[in-house]
Design a binder for these strands. Structure first.
Length: 356
DNA sequence: TAGGCCATCTGGTCCT
DNA sequence: AGGACCAGATGGCCTA
C-alpha cells in the first residue's frame, strides 16, 4: 500500500510538499514515511475495529470490485430494539472502497498538515511584528495572539487619544491576559528600553517627564534587530543580558555592529524593520563577532525619533542620524521592503500623528 | 513527574 | 466527491 502511495503520481505533490517542510532532509523524509506507515497502520487497525468492517472486507473479498452492492442490514432494521438509521444506506466496504478511503484519508492528512503549517507560518510572521520577538525562544501561539491583540489595542489607543501614554499603563495594556513569563518578558523589555530612553531624555530635557513616563516615540515596533552595546562581549551591565534579552533601541543609535545579521541562523525579519513613522531602517553594516550572536535573543522594536534616544545615541530622523551611521539612504519607504503587502492605513495615521 | 505546548491524525460538518 | 475548516484525541518533547 505504501509503495503504491509513493508511486502514485497524484499523491507525489503532497508527499513532496510534505518532505520539503522537513527541508528535504532524508532523515525527515524517512520519518515522514514512517509516520505515514504508522497512520496507515492506525487506519487499518481502526478499520478492523469499526463496524464489522473486517467481516465486510472478507465479504468484499468475495465480490471484490462490486462497489454498487448495497449493504443489507435486514436483521438490524427489522429489530425493534434499535431505530432504523436514516440516510443513504452504507455500501459494502469492498477492498477497492477501503483502498480509496485510505487514500482519501492520507491525502486529507497531508492537506491538514499543509494547512497547519501555513497557519504556523502566519503565526511566525505575527511573532515578528509584536513587541517581543525571539527566534530562539518563541512566544507560544496563544501568547503571540494575546500580545498581538494587546499591541493593536495599545496602538489604537494612541491614535484615538492622541496622547502620550505612560510606560506603566502601556505595559499593563500589552501584558493584559498574558502568562506570567510572557508578562515578565514584555515588561522587562519595555522597562529596559524606557530606562535607556529616560536616561537620555532626562539629560536633554531635565527630567521633564516623570519617572514612569516615556516618549511615545519609543513605542516598540520593529525597527531593526540590532545588537545592543550591552550585549557586546565586553559588557555585562545589561540587566537582562543574562536572560538573553537585548534592547534594539540603544544599539540602533550607539551599537557598533549587528552580529545577528551575520549570524548563520539569522533571518531578516519578514516584516521590515518598521519605525513608527512608517519608515524602515536597514541592516546595520559593521563588524560582528560570532560570540555576539548569543547576545541577541529578545529585542524590542523601538523606533528612533528626536528626543527619544539614549545617551550617546542618535535618532533616525534628526540631524544626528548621519552620525549614527543610519543614513537616509538606509531608510527605505515601506513599499521598497514590503512589495507584496498593502500598507495598512494605520501607518499613515501614525506617520501624520508623529509628525505633528 | 506533572503540566504546558506542539504536531499530527481523525471524523464531522459545510461548501463548491 | 472532494476540499476547507474545525475540534477532540493522542503522543512526544521540554521544563520546573
Amino acid at each position: 500500500m505504501l509503495t503504491r502511495l509513493f508511486s502514485d503520481p497524484s499523491l507525489l505533490p503532497d508527499v513532496q510538499k510534505y518532505s520539503s517542510w522537513a527541508e528535504d532532509s532524508d532523515e525527515d523524509v524517512r520519518k515522514i514515511k514512517d509516520e505515514d506507515q504508522v497512520s496507515q497502520d492506525d487506519m487499518e487497525s481502526s478499520d478492523m475495529r469499526g463496524d464489522d468492517s473486517r467481516t465486510q472486507s472478507e465479504h468484499a473479498g468475495e465480490d471484490d470490485e462490486d462497489d454498487e452492492v448495497e449493504e443489507e442490514d435486514d436483521g438490524e432494521d427489522t429489530e425493534g430494539d434499535r431505530p432504523k438509521k436514516r440516510g443513504p444506506k452504507k455500501r459494502k466496504m469492498t477492498q477497492a472502497r477501503i483502498e480509496r478511503s485510505k487514500l482519501r484519508r492520507i491525502k486529507a492528512n497531508a492537506r491538514e498538515r499543509t494547512r497547519m503549517h501555513d497557519l504556523n507560518s502566519a503565526l511566525d510572521n505575527l511573532r515578528k511584528v509584536v513587541p517581543c520577538y525571539s527566534k530562539t525562544q518563541k512566544l507560544s501561539k496563544i501568547e503571540t495572539l494575546r500580545l498581538a491583540k494587546n499591541y493593536i489595542w495599545a496602538l489604537s489607543e494612541i491614535l484615538r487619544s492622541g496622547k502620550r501614554p505612560d510606560l506603566v499603563s502601556y505595559v499593563q495594556t500589552l501584558c493584559k491576559g498574558l502568562s506570567q513569563p510572557t508578562t515578565n518578558l514584555v515588561a522587562g523589555c519595555l522597562q529596559l528600553n524606557s530606562r535607556n530612553f529616560l536616561t537620555e531624555q532626562q539629560c536633554q530635557e531635565g527630567g521633564r517627564y516623570g519617572s514612569a513616563s516615556f516618549s511615545m516615540h519609543s513605542y516598540p515596533y520593529q525597527c531593526a534587530r540590532l545588537s545592543s552595546p550591552h550585549c557586546q562581549p565586553g559588557s555585562n551591565s545589561h540587566p537582562l543580558r543574562t536572560h538573553g534579552y537585548c534592547s534594539t533601541y540603544d544599539s540602533l543609535y550607539g551599537g557598533s555592529g549587528s552580529p545577528e545579521y551575520n549570524s548563520p541562523d539569522y533571518e531578516p525579519p519578514l516584516s521590515p524593520p518598521l519605525c513608527i513613522n512608517g519608515n524602515f531602517s536597514l541592516k546595520h553594516q559593521g563588524s560582528a563577532s560570532p560570540e555576539n550572536e548569543k547576545g541577541y535573543h529578545y529585542s524590542m522594536h523601538y523606533s528612533g525619533l528626536p528626543g527619544s534616544r539614549p545617551s550617546g545615541g542618535h535618532n533616525l530622523f534628526g540631524s544626528s542620524g548621519a552620525r549614527s551611521g543610519i543614513h537616509s539612504e538606509n531608510v527605505l519607504p515601506y513599499h521598497d521592503m514590503h512589495l507584496h503587502h498593502e500598507r495598512p492605513p494605520v501607518y499613515d495615521e501614525l506617520n501624520a500623528f508623529f509628525h505633528n
